[in-house]
Design a protein around this nucleic acid. Structure first.
Lengths: 220, 220
DNA sequence: CATCAATCTGGACACCGTCCAGATTAGGGA
DNA sequence: TCCCTAATCTGGACGGTGTCCAGATTGATG
């Protein structure tokens, strides 16, 4: 049997080297961040010569980009896992608010729980995160089974709109504002204020999400 | 006369090498970002041997950290310059709102106008940006003449409080929420959505700041 | 004026990503 | 069934990186 992905080495040919390289890169990034993805280390883990990378990727940056996609899917999965454990109130309006709040909280929590994966996921790979608010021209095939974080955010805001808490024409603006809040919280707590305690971090997240929802749902 | 900082080389000793290295590093970062700060290139610009760096900095990362401080001051200066060109309305409440809005806009605009400097300024140097809302234990001496961006943000929120638009006990939370909004906007527009047009970028900034102020000033 | 400590130079090392030529092997047409 | 083409992987090399160590130079102090 021996699935080709798990077997370390069958013979001269690896079998599924591309996926193995991405997996090894993800594992390195998990513990050491993007700069831990080093060509010779990745290939050493997989048990292959350094230059074998270049048969599947044009450059190391392309491998990193593939790892970034992998990390984005992992992030969305973690967020879905968090959302599954939230029981929403009966009221549709309150439920929509809670949903958005928990999507945002899950976004920040992933960044703090898996800083290495979050960094590689957000590491300047162009269009790594979709272009929300735009045409959404079928962002790849597996957008259904393997969503990206921005998909969850957009869905949460759509739900807020359906609950009558947000004008439909404001959706794009609301997406940007929400994304900015959670991404700002994540990057600040991760990169600029790493010495904050867990309680302080949670307070900051609560504050950011509180004002966001207040701003989104209060009519001028 | 020949000030010691400008003279390229007097003799064996440079005179003010440390400052010259920081300046060269800042110039490299301005055009190429943090990764453009390369030891041999910095020293080549200054006209000195590569290892001369190690008499003033323990490692290249320390030089980068010094450049980051430099960039933070430059950012605050640019923000002040922007604020000077804003004429505020007579009404104190409206003026406070406009002030915060323009502080936020200046924050994002600097990131978009000087991406290299913004990146080095925010490049994970611990405590690069102060710890707002905390004891503020004399954040260095020159906090008066050479403020950092967070100082301007805190001042803007204090002004909002003095105008009666924000409860005093919410200041810390408001700082975090405001900072998250503008920092999130900046990093998203810079790193994750670089292909947006100028108009789209401005719309995103307006949206983020609009909901932020709405959230801050609307009483629950 | 001599001496010391600070400053800067020169050479070396290990590691990095990438290129080029060659070995190995899987898969499909005769 | 055999071969041969194309894909895959290996080995060695090159230029560039940050950092260490020993030695040259010099401003300042006694």
């Amino acid at each position: 049997m021996a699935t080709r992905s798990t077997r370390t080495r069958s013979s001269y040919h690896h079998g599924d080297l591309r996926a193995a390289l991405v997996g090894a890169g993800a594992e390195l990034a998990r513990t050491g961040g993007p700069e831990a993805i080093v060509l010779r280390e990745v290939t050493r883990i997989v048990g292959v010569a350094p230059n074998a990378v270049y048969t599947h990727f044009g450059t190391l940056a392309e491998l990193k980009s593939a790892v970034a996609q992998h990390a984005l899917r992992a992030m969305a999965a973690a967020m879905l896992s968090h959302l599954a454990q939230v029981d929403e109130p009966a009221d549709a309006r309150e439920a929509a608010e809670v949903h958005l709040r928990e999507v945002g909280r899950a976004y920040v929590h992933f960044a703090l729980d898996q800083p290495g994966l979050f960094r590689i996921a957000m590491d300047g790979n162009p269009d790594g995160v979709g272009t929300p608010g735009l045409g959404e021209k079928q962002s790849d095939s597996a957008s259904e089974d393997h969503p990206k974080p921005d998909t969850l955010l957009i869905a949460a805001l759509r739900r807020l709109t359906e609950a009558g808490l947000l004008p439909a024409e404001e959706t794009d603006a609301a997406v940007m504002a929400s994304w900015a809040t959670v991404h700002g919280l994540a990057t600040i707590l991760l990169n600029l204020q790493p010495s904050r305690s867990v309680a302080e971090r949670e307070a900051a997240v609560d504050a950011g999400l509180h004002y966001l929802l207040q701003g989104l749902t209060s009519r001028a």
